[in-house]
Design a protein around this nucleic acid. Structure first.
Ligand SMILES: [Zn+2]
Ligand SMILES: [Zn+2]
Ligand SMILES: [Zn+2]
Ligand SMILES: [Zn+2]
Lengths: 145, 145
DNA sequence: GCGGATAATGTTATTATATAACGTTTAAGG
DNA sequence: CCTTAAACGTTATATAATAACATTATCCGC
């Protein structure tokens, strides 16, 4: 094997491709069991949870998929390959998420950790709230009442 | 009831007190089932998962306990009642965690969200790495070999 | 192409985490 | 005392993730 460096797009296996495609086709994060339940996935012959989890693990290794901890769900990465960490905005109303770059904020956070003698490997940021669409809808409903 | 404002220390029920005490006595985050398995907890008569989860929910409402999403575990809050968000440093070696204030970094993150039209309710930050003790131990072992 | 190594997959069972449903008890307030 | 809401007990169930082990596919040097 060409021993790809982290993040390289080594060609995907069939299972990995199916799972990635499923996530790309979704408009919000899917749990492993959500994916498992998709007709396309069943038709492709993927029928055990472990099959899904294994594919997800590899996709995450390659940075093509992220895990949203607070949802136990997975989402396709819509950024290019990124070295610095990203955060997620999670709409508690519609369930959709938005990935945002952290840039210098990551350094800020890691610095706070270093003050404590802590060597940081990975930073995860998840913010819950309302997306523009849902916020607008709520405002409209409030005006009506 | 005195209708306490968020974060006030309304007196705890027996179950809540037992669970909080268990978390205070631990040196790292415990899962609900970790708590359920503690002799003290069993002796106190708490024996169903739901009993633990209910107590944890109330304790989190009061800001006395935090949930670590990436561990599915819970930890006693060792800060005073805090309005701004906090983050957690998680040692991937020993499993211990350290709570850190986010202060202005929270504003920074929320600002990033607002740029996207997103109204943020809550910010969760979890950083994985090695704590000072484990980093030192690793360094010592590396020197020996 | 052959042979050995490595990675991916299939299959079944099991563990771990969390909630639903429903009835009972407890505590507060008029 | 009576009402009401919160907390609790109990059982069953839903959801999320991994263990164990056999099998197949792929890569690579020969
Ligand atoms: Zn990404
Ligand atoms: Zn929304
Ligand atoms: Zn805290
Ligand atoms: Zn440590």
């Amino acid at each position: 094997m060409a021993e790809p460096t982290a993040g390289t797009d080594r060609s995907l296996t069939r299972n990995q491709g199916e799972v990635l495609s499923a996530l790309k086709g979704a408009d919000k994060p899917l749990t492993a069991y959500d994916i498992l339940g998709l007709p396309k996935i069943r038709k492709a012959g993927l029928k055990a949870p472990l099959t899904i989890y294994r594919a997800l693990d590899k996709l995450m290794d390659q940075g093509l998929v992220h895990r949203i901890e607070s949802l136990n769900a997975f989402v396709h990465c819509d950024h290019g390959p990124h070295d610095h960490a990203t955060g997620f905005l999670i709409c508690s109303d519609c369930g959709r998420t938005l990935e945002v770059h952290l840039d210098d904020c990551e350094d800020h956070l890691a610095g706070r950790a270093r003050e404590q003698g802590f060597a940081v490997d990975a930073v995860k940021v998840e913010m819950t709230g309302r997306c523009p669409d849902c916020a607008a809808r709520q405002a409209a409903q409030a005006a009506t009442s």
